[in-house]
Amino acid sequence: MNDEDMAAGLDALVPRLRQFVAVAREEHLTRAAEQLGVPQPTLSRSIARLEAELGVPLFSRPGRSVKLTRHGRLLFEYSERTLTTLAAQLRLLAEETDPARGRVALAFLHTLGTDAVPRMLRDFRATHPAVRFVLVQGSADMLLARLRAGEADLCLTAPLPNEPGIVTRKLDSQRIDLVVPAGHRLARRRGVRLAEAAAEDFIGMPPGHGLRTISNELCRAAGFEPRIAFEGEETATCRGLVGAG
């Protein structure tokens, strides 16, 4: 059998697979038809067409019953296993999408992992205890890539993306501070214009992180490009390095 014949065989087999397995289990066309909820003549014609298209007899017909032939037993072994596996996967899919018991893939920025996300999950699980979460942290670019690919259901990120196919909603605001070492010339000031720090070396997130995008935009709005001395993916690391001078 060449590839074209095999493809044609699959086209014929897949829609009739459940019918074939039902007849093989019952060894009786009438009982199988009742189980499937189809007229017995319709089921008989479907099995006959399947045998004709595969080019082998699947059943022998002694009396009023039917029995699997050698070729029928070979097909039945794999067909039954395939249907069982498919049914299990469909049940898993139903559980995954059940609003009361499903699983949610939540992607979020590193900066939200210390307080905001744990608080949100605690509050949500108080009223939906059976819902499970898969948590992913990363940069804004990586999180959005997962969202576009369908690997994440929800994404907590900033700045908000503006592109087709993604629905956004502002949930909260976070203040962004300019952090300097103790003893720095700006350290004891109650207020600072960002332009006053234009000559300083900056420590920040790598490109692709939302905070880096926002901080770059703020610096450009203040009239300068920030000179980046070091890039770190964790805000705690960045603050520690600033504190060390």
Rank of each mutant, 00 (worst) to 15 (best):
T111N: 10
R73C: 12
Y78P: 01
H184I: 06
P226H: 00
R125T: 11
Q174G: 04
A199P: 01
G9R: 12
H128T: 07
P62G: 00
I176M: 13
T82K: 06
S60F: 10
A199R: 15
L29V: 08
T114C: 05
D3E: 10
F59C: 06
A52R: 12
V21R: 00
L112C: 08
L74H: 10
L29R: 03
L211Q: 04
C238Q: 14
T168Q: 03
G191W: 05
E231H: 03
A236M: 01
G232V: 04
R188H: 11
Q19R: 14
D98V: 07
P181R: 13
H209I: 02
A229K: 10
P99C: 07
E80I: 07
I166R: 02
K170Q: 15
A24S: 10
H184R: 06
G191C: 08
A24G: 09
A87R: 13
N216E: 15
P129R: 07
L154W: 05
H128W: 09
E80A: 15
P15W: 07
V136M: 12
A8S: 09
T114F: 06
A33M: 01
F202G: 02
R25V: 05
R25G: 13
A12L: 14
H128C: 12
R103Q: 14
A48T: 14
P57Y: 06
I228D: 00
L160D: 04
D5P: 00
G102M: 01
L154A: 07
L29T: 03
H71M: 11
R64G: 12
A12T: 09
A24H: 01
A182T: 11
R227D: 11
L13F: 04
L93R: 11
V66R: 03
P118N: 06
T42D: 04
P39I: 09
A130V: 01
H110M: 00
H209F: 08
G55S: 01
P129L: 08
G138V: 00
G191M: 06
A152R: 03
E53V: 09
R189I: 03
L10G: 11
G113T: 02
L112G: 02
L211V: 14
R122D: 11
C238E: 08
L68V: 03
E151S: 04
A7V: 07
E80R: 11
Q174F: 15
A24F: 02
E95L: 13
L171V: 14
F133C: 04
R122T: 08
L10D: 02
I176A: 10
A8I: 03
S79W: 03
S46Y: 05
R185P: 05
I176E: 07
E53H: 11
G55N: 09
M1P: 08
T30L: 12
L17Q: 09
D5C: 07
P181E: 10
